Simulated scan of single mutants.
Amino acid sequence: MPVPDVRGAVWADLVGQDRAVDELAAAASDPTAMTHAWLFTGPPGSGRSVAARAFAAALQCRFDGCGQCQDCHTVLAGTHPDVREVVPEGLSISVAEMRALVQIAARRPSTGGWQIVVISDADRLTEGASNALLKAVEEPSERTVFLLCAPSDHPDDVPVTIRSRCRLVPLRTPPADAIASVLADRDGIAEETASWAASVCGGHIGRARRLARDEEARSRRESVLRLPLSLRGFGEVFAAADDLIGAAEAEAADVTGSRDLAEREALATAMGAGGTGKGVASAQRGAKAAERELERRQRSRSTRSQRDALDRALVDLAGFYRDVLVVRVGASVPVTNPDRSLDVSRAAADWTPESALRRLEAVLACREALELNVKPRIAVEAMLTVLYRGG
């Protein structure tokens, strides 16, 4: 059987990261270049989880990532028995979850060559979870590999003790032309739409796809970018806060609603709902604790989804004020929202650079406040007050 051409196979979805792909492909094909722990860093949309998943597939594949064999397909689909991916749905990754994962990771591979653990959003590890992971990374099993993903290698994102034991793979923001090519050539999106989405997505290919395909996503972006010039009084401030928070809650409900219902129905069935006979009453009484735990997890997931939706709106706002500052000082750098050039120019003519900068800082402070669990309404209203007053 001929060896497939693998250079563009499992790595095909990793856009604009040639240097990282070369390093990872070399490690997958050369055992002497391997190490037991890797840390993928980069801004949102750079492809941290995509890179980790592709690397996992290349490690399990006999041809170092052909993209065609069963190992490649099952790893990329998330069903390979020797590859486990932790994607936090709530606000954090708990110590109990990490301890269970570490125990599994210590086992020998059942079918593949490696036992691989992929931790998306490793910056959400609790202190206890980080300590549990550290012990495993310090003394790993011979055929175990940990692939961690985080925005940066800063101690706020990844503890120094863990970072020092990982091989760093930094990813960059993909260029707009590379994103546009993927949308047009691989996803079949019209070139004009692909080019527009790539130019306004901030280098986030997943967001570019949503904007290109989803009319509601485009509508939400338009609503957010109309805010800066629509704040003419405190009435508009409070109305805008209602709109931003309401839109985030609605978006989160769309994402989690059907899944929550399916989970509740599955739990009810497992606990004997509708059943008769001996043991049913006892099982239903025992189901109360399971129901409370499910409700807790669903609330945490809903909160995370709402904050993620709100954060996307804040990123759009930050991009607008950044563009105003760029135009106001005459910087020779690309703008984030080229399709809002008229609004940006109008704002740049009315605001001083200091005022534009204070507004940008208010948006960034709101994002930080939300990460510190400040109530969204308080954080958003405080931000919008600064956006209205300019300082």
Rank of each mutant, 00 (worst) to 15 (best):
P4L: 09
G8W: 04
A12R: 14
A12V: 11
V15H: 02
A20G: 07
D22C: 05
A28N: 02
W38L: 08
L39I: 08
L39G: 02
G47D: 03
S49R: 11
S49E: 08
V50A: 07
A58L: 04
L59T: 01
G67D: 11
D71E: 13
T74K: 11
T74V: 07
H80D: 14
P81T: 10
R84E: 11
E85Q: 15
V87Y: 01
V87T: 13
P88T: 10
L91S: 15
I104M: 12
S110N: 10
W114S: 12
W114P: 09
N131Q: 13
S141D: 11
R143K: 15
T144H: 01
P151R: 01
D153W: 02
D156L: 12
D156G: 14
S164D: 09
S164G: 06
R165N: 08
C166P: 06
R167L: 13
V169E: 04
P170I: 04
R172A: 14
T173I: 13
P175I: 12
A176K: 00
I179S: 07
A180W: 00
V182F: 01
A184H: 01
A184G: 03
I189R: 00
C201W: 00
R207Q: 14
A208R: 00
S223A: 15
L225H: 02
R226N: 13
L227F: 02
P228L: 12
P228D: 12
L231G: 10
D243P: 04
A248H: 02
A253P: 05
G257L: 12
R259C: 06
R259A: 14
E263S: 04
M271E: 15
G275C: 09
V280F: 03
V280H: 04
R285W: 11
G286N: 14
G286H: 12
A289H: 10
R297W: 00
T303M: 13
D308T: 12
D308A: 11
A309T: 11
R312L: 07
R322H: 09
V327T: 11
V327L: 13
T336H: 11
R340A: 07
E354Q: 12
A356G: 14
R358F: 08
L360W: 01
L360E: 08
L364H: 10
A365P: 04
E368P: 01
A369Q: 13
L372N: 09
N373C: 06
P376K: 03
V380L: 05
L384T: 01
L384W: 00
V386G: 06
L387Q: 05
Y388T: 06
Y388I: 06
R389V: 11
